[in-house]
């Protein structure tokens, strides 16, 4: 175990035999994998396969009960200082956006830089406006989340996560709650982010996005990784029959 860090030293996230239970229900059954710096990985699988739970263990929104997770050299443990450090390096985008409804778009983005990174208000605001411009909604900066569309809200959520200058971005089904005509505006932002070299872990059902952007696709079922491969291999020549079934079902519509 001690040489785990050394053998995979170009990895920014290392997961070794990660287990998790919800009461008696075994959600994650020994996940072992690693993610390289700058790698874009799409995680897919049927609902209930544990894919969301898995990426939520990486910034400890879910606590794993066995195994090890090391993020950028910091091991996730009960040590609160480690958790705080990791959360500053890992940004997360949620299915339901989870913007703060009582704060304006700009305040949503500047909140954490001001209070956690102790930036001055003017510094945080100029950085936030630059990020909002990057995701294409700088003109909405002074509106409240309820006043903008779902696609715009999700782009604000991405800008909010980027404002902490994370090394890793986690996306938990970022387009699943969106109306169809808004999915692309969010995927475009994610494509741009991927091109900029960000390490990205994306749980999604958007197989077109996976094929186009991912370096690797992980297929999970019943709490375990069933198959992982480059998208070309994964989609055109899947090895496992559960993967084959899943791909044939998702590509039908």
């Amino acid at each position: 175990m001690a040489d785990l860090e050394n053998t995979l030293d170009d990895s920014i996230i290392i997961c070794k035999d990660v287990h998790k239970w919800f009461d008696d229900f075994h959600v994650l059954k020994g996940i072992t994998t690693a993610f390289k710096k700058g790698e874009k990985v799409v995680i897919c699988g049927p609902s209930g396969s544990g894919k969301s739970t898995f990426i939520r263990t990486i910034n400890r929104l879910e606590i794993h009960q066995r195994g090890r997770i090391i993020v950028d050299g910091i091991e996730l443990s009960d040590d609160l200082r480690n958790i705080d450090r990791i959360r500053q390096e890992v940004g997360m985008v949620f299915q339901q956006f989870n913007l703060f409804p009582h704060l304006s778009v700009l305040q949503n983005v500047t909140l954490s830089p001001i209070w956690v990174k102790k930036l001055s208000k003017s510094e945080a605001e100029s950085e936030a406006l630059a990020l909002l411009e990057r995701v294409g909604i700088e003109e909405q900066a002074h509106k409240f989340p309820a006043q903008i569309s779902g696609g715009q809200q999700q782009r604000v959520a991405i800008a909010r996560a980027l404002a902490m200058q994370p090394k890793i971005m986690l996306f938990d089904e970022p387009t699943s709650a969106l109306d169809p005509e808004m999915i692309n505006e969010v995927l475009d932002v994610m494509r741009e982010l991927a091109a900029s070299g960000m390490t990205m872990l994306v749980v999604t059902h958007e197989m077109g996005f996976a094929r186009e952007v991912a370096d690797r696709v992980i297929f999970m079922d019943e709490g375990a990784i069933v198959e992982e491969a480059a998208p070309g291999v994964f989609f055109d020549n899947p090895q496992n029959e559960r993967t084959q079934l899943f791909i044939s079902q998702t590509l039908q519509h």
Partner: peptide
């Protein structure tokens, strides 16, 4: 969760 994920 969103607040925790932002490091608050």
């Amino acid at each position: 969760e969103a607040a925790h994920a932002l490091g608050l």
